[in-house]
Design a protein around this nucleic acid. Sequence first.
RNA 1: GGUCCCGUAGCUCAGUCGGAUAGAGCACCAGAUUCCUAAUCUGGGGGCCGGUGGUUCGAAUCCACCCGGGAUCACCA
Length: 583
Amino acid sequence: MNVFTHFRGVIDERLNELATNGDLPVDIDLKNVSVEPPRDASHGDIATNAALVLSKQAKRKPRDIAEMLKPKLEMVDAIEMVEIAGPGFINMRLSAGFWQEQIRSILASGTDFGNSDTGADTPINVEYVSANPTGPMHVGHVRGAVFGDALANLLDKAGFKVTKEYVINDAGSQIDVLAKSAYLRYREAFGEDIGKIPEGLYPGDYMIPVGERLKDKYGDKFLNADEAEWLSIIKLDAVDAMMDMIKDDLKALGIEHDVFFSEKTLHESGRIDEAIDVLRERGHIYEGVLEPPKGKLPDDWEEREQTLFRSTDFGDDVDRALKKSNGDYTYFGADIAYHYDKYQRGFKDMINVWGADHQGYIKRVQSAIKALSGDGSLDVKVCQLVHLLRDGEPVKMSKRAGTFITLREVVDEVGRDVTRFIMLTRKNDAPLDFDFSKVMEQSKDNPVFYVQYAHARICSVLNRAKDTFANIDTADGSLQNADLSRLVSDGELMMIKQCCAWPRMVEAAAEAHEPHRIAFFLYDLASEFHAFWNKGNDNPSLRFIIDGDIEVTKARLALIRSVALVIASGLAILGVEPLKEMR
RNA sequence: GGUCCCGUAGCUCAGUCGGAUAGAGCACCAGAUUCCUAAUCUGGGGGCCGGUGGUUCGAAUCCACCCGGGAUCACCA
């Protein structure tokens, strides 16, 4: 249960009563009323701005409305105290009993705690990674991959029906290059000395096994054949080989897509013509000449007539070309068909995760979706660069020279969990430093460790309880029966409240499409817990395991088990395994 | 020149559909281990939230215009 949503409902009811009684206008609009935790805990547990928001509509002073609402709220069982503060905020304190009961429901829900139905099973498509199938994934892909995956998990938890999608760009000229590179390695597999890989082909060693694979599959069939004979066939094999490699890389990060969509199929099936015809019928396509870009002209600029999409009608800056000079569709042309296809598959909500270099591409795709669908919407999440460091020094990489750092190298060195968590410790649109030395540090400077450590500590306490009480049952089902009214200290109630904020956090993060909020929340929760733990150092009566008092012990175990469940539930969104011990 | 992103403590960054006295970590200073993992915790100093106007009960948050940093800019994908 989301505590705040629950009381939002309660407050709405009482406001409607006031409207029925004639104290407020009958047609009063409650949509701006919010119920949230006050920033300052001394103001109580929940606060509402209802009186302030409704003041104008009701043509009454905020304090008057607050005074009318106050007695009605005081009658609610769980509400212990109601106070009007400042310009008209209504602060409420909830009873300890109410909070204690929440532990029971957290234990009953397990790691499903925080699941929400705000998504209402709405289909939503999250497209991420979509690295070109021309080589292994490199470090530049990692952030988008992790971000997209965590966002998809988050939306799933919030009740959306999520499809994780990868579009394979298997149609462009880079695939010809790939096939030629593979063919060279194929000849090499027969013992031919191919010398230095010619400029313009992919030089990486990862192409060698592809050559072997072709040799095994086709024997010497293509050895003396014309390019026209082998090109289209080897393209397929080469792309397959690249995708196998990429899927392996993704697996190392714990990522598995539901759908791999082939761009090539759009070209072959005439779907691009179809989508563009739709646009043409609606009058959004014309043959014309684009203005040269303002500012510095590209050296090889020439005026030419092109098939253009009038994206400026939908908020773009200039109209966009759909066909290349050789008559083929541009990537944008194919992309229009791709997004139209997604829409026709039932996705009105689409999210794409792109690198920072694609920012300028956003408006045109959104324009196309508007022009084609009317009610479809695309949110593009742009991930800024990751600065790789080692001991504070930049790690050089050069994609051109083939010496780029691969995703695999990063994961092999620091592990999947660390890679994933650290990538989510910044907003997607802020650059991120990734220091190989720092992320492996076992200290509170390192948020992964800090959160994991809290979880491990809890598991450790649950185990140790058996040393003190031989017969104690620490299973969730048993802890649910603990006498939770024994949880009365400030620290204990704080922990409960923090856990109860979890569902609200999930909903807010999902709505904003911001999985990093989960990482920050977990850090805060871990911090609460570590503080609580240390109180037992100063005051033994605040320890979790109290020798001779099994009831208090069980109640406290129920509490910290709830904390562990929230941490595990959050880590699951991030795709990180909660650790039971860290020795 | 256009577009997009960023600008919050010395440093790295959070900041909830606009909410009350703007938060955390690092660094700095002072403390806490016969004790469930000190791999942790407690306390302290430190801010014209880039600037100027506007919107309103109320702005770090929304709008306009500036300043500074980054990315990107006809047929590549």
